[in-house]
Simulated assay, not measured.
Amino acid sequence: MSEQNRSGDPPENVAVETASPADRLDVLRVLDAAMLETDAASVDAAIGADDALVARFKRTGAVVGALVATRPESGQVHVDAVAVRRARRGRGIGSALVAEAVRRAEGDTDADRVTAAFEPTLESFYADLGFEIGDRDGRLRGVKRVDDGPG
């Protein structure tokens, strides 16, 4: 398996883009395969708000990763779920999805931070992407402050 790409750029053969309603089933399948507890209504809401992203294999158009964000409070974009198909992990796809969510938040005048809650095994993943890591109620949380618009 190749070395992980933590620069935030997707691998050359993968495009990260806004999920469309046609991607709904693929997003649900990727998240389900990773055993993430995101329900269909949350995915539908994120897709409707343009807060869901997919990583698509350029050659075939297959969805190989997905990110679902929510907006639980004013100014906050929360990474609710991010997953990559097992065969594509370790190549920077998950990093590219989170980095794109951060870039979009940076251009969103309603957002001042991106947050995530995650297991300890993902601490370095989020730290490498510039998140400040803290512990709340035994679960790690990351916060990345963003500008009030494009820089």
Rank of each mutant, 00 (worst) to 15 (best):
D51H: 08
R136N: 00
D32G: 11
A105R: 05
G149R: 02
V114L: 04
R59S: 15
N5T: 10
K58M: 00
G151D: 12
F131L: 05
D32W: 09
R89Y: 04
V114P: 02
V84W: 04
G92D: 02
L140Y: 01
E73L: 10
E37N: 08
V82G: 01
G8V: 10
G151W: 06
L140W: 00
Q76L: 14
V43S: 13
I93R: 00
M1G: 15
G134A: 12
F131H: 04
R85Q: 09
V43R: 14
E123L: 12
R136T: 01
G151F: 08
A15L: 08
M1F: 10
L129F: 13
G151H: 09
V82Y: 00
A127R: 15
A99Q: 00
P11T: 05
A116L: 12
D110Y: 13
R56K: 09
E73C: 06
E132I: 12
G65D: 00
A101I: 10
D51N: 09
A99I: 01
R103Y: 06
R86A: 11
V84G: 10
R6W: 14
K58S: 00
V84I: 11
P120G: 14
A69T: 11
V63L: 07
D32P: 06
S7T: 14
V143L: 02
A62I: 12
T60H: 04
L36W: 08
G48I: 14
E123P: 05
D50H: 05
D108K: 04
A46Y: 07
V79C: 06
A96N: 06
E123I: 11
V63E: 06
R85W: 03
D9W: 03
E123H: 14
R91A: 15
S7H: 03
A41V: 11
L122E: 05
S2A: 12
A83M: 01
L53N: 02
E132C: 09
R24C: 01
A69D: 11
T38D: 03
A96P: 10
V27F: 12
R29T: 13
D51I: 02
D112A: 01
G138S: 11
Q4G: 06
L31G: 13
G134L: 11
E100R: 09
V102L: 09
V84P: 13
A22T: 12
R145D: 11
K58W: 00
G75L: 07
D32R: 14
V30D: 04
R24L: 04
V27D: 08
V64Y: 02
R91Q: 15
A101R: 13
